[in-house]
Design a protein around this nucleic acid. Structure first.
Lengths: 188, 188
DNA sequence: CGCCCCATGTAAGACGTTACATGATTGA
DNA sequence: TCAATCATGTAACGTCTTACATGGGGCG
């Protein structure tokens, strides 16, 4: 029941989805496999144990939904503690490591951000991403200058792909900030 | 000693690096932590077991380099079988799954491609990536049309980020093809 | 009746992370 | 001589993958 344990990305994905709408393990699997969250596992061997862990930590609570003639279904809801944990995860500033390991997790945080921590904190997250990317891109460009000249074309291009990808991400972050800028106000 | 086993991405990364230049486990760790391959683990608990597995499968062979007064160092080299396995991995056509799970592994394949399978096969890999991305982007755009309208702005933006990222990747692939187009000839 | 979808789980094994352990060499 | 770096590993732990198991319900 101790929440200060490390939660893997899948756990946060489950928390975020359940915060949006209580659901069963099966529902969550369908969500992963049918929407564009296919990068997360939809296998029962991953999801059911993950739900069990979250429940053991007191972050979600499952209630059995009998009676409607259907087979036993367990519906999970996030607890107050789970919501707090989710907020902490989302609102934490974006680090360089977050970017190096791949932007997917940051994107997940941002996708949930508005519903969990509100508009202003979502904007703050975007700003944090923008700042981290700016710093990182400087380092990437420096590294590119220092690349050995005898490296084959494909090696150079692959590196360039990484740079372009991060530049595209930075452009998107600014586009996101501009979008929020345009329609000011709304739910904080 | 059976090669038809599944090799994780880290194993292929090691094979590719060793194919470029024989090295010790420590050297490989340094490469991972000092170059922009930081997304792969530089921890001894990952690399040494991985090297052991590759050697057990007959894909690399380690020779102890004594004598130079330094401490025992084991230098690994890829075997003929390891090279064959590397070629198979690189030259395999790009699937939709390759893209969904993240382009990092495809990028690694491309980065090594010129040295391992030659210029023409590298171009072929790029073309394969381009084709897969085109198909995938159509599906992504369709999915974006079908997004529920009540989804919060951050959710929409996050999805858009995925689309833009893949578009950027497609643009890069074409840029790569153009680069090869410009300087025709060279090593096949 | 057989087959497929709903819905939940478990078991075995592989892999990575973290932390620890060891010992040699180099430099202050 | 003390610390840092070189260089290699091992052990415990958690998690994911793959495959299997179980049963109810609807449909042809």
């Amino acid at each position: 029941m101790n929440s200060p344990k490390k939660i893997p990305a899948l756990g946060y994905a489950l928390l975020g989805l359940l915060n949006g709408k209580p659901a069963s393990g099966y529902d969550l699997r369908k969500t992963f496999s049918s929407t564009s969250m296919k990068s997360y596992s939809d296998s029962p061997g991953a999801i059911y144990p993950a739900l069990g862990r979250l429940e053991k930590q007191g972050l979600i609570r499952g209630t059995i939904e009998q009676g409607s003639g259907l087979r036993r279904r367990q519906i999970f809801r996030v607890t107050a503690r789970g919501l707090a944990e989710l907020k902490k995860w989302i609102a934490r500033p974006v680090t360089r490591d977050d970017i190096v390991r791949g932007p997917q997790e940051v994107m997940l945080r941002f996708a949930f951000s508005e519903m969990v921590v509100g508009r202003d904190a979502a904007i703050e997250l975007l700003r944090s991403l923008e700042a981290a990317l700016q710093v990182y891109l400087v380092a990437l460009h420096e590294e590119m200058e220092a690349l050995p000249a005898m490296m084959p074309t494909s090696g150079h291009l692959a590196f360039e792909c990484g740079v372009r990808g991060n530049e595209s991400l930075l452009a998107w972050a600014r586009h996101g900030l501009a979008t929020y800028e345009k329609k000011k106000g709304g739910t904080s």
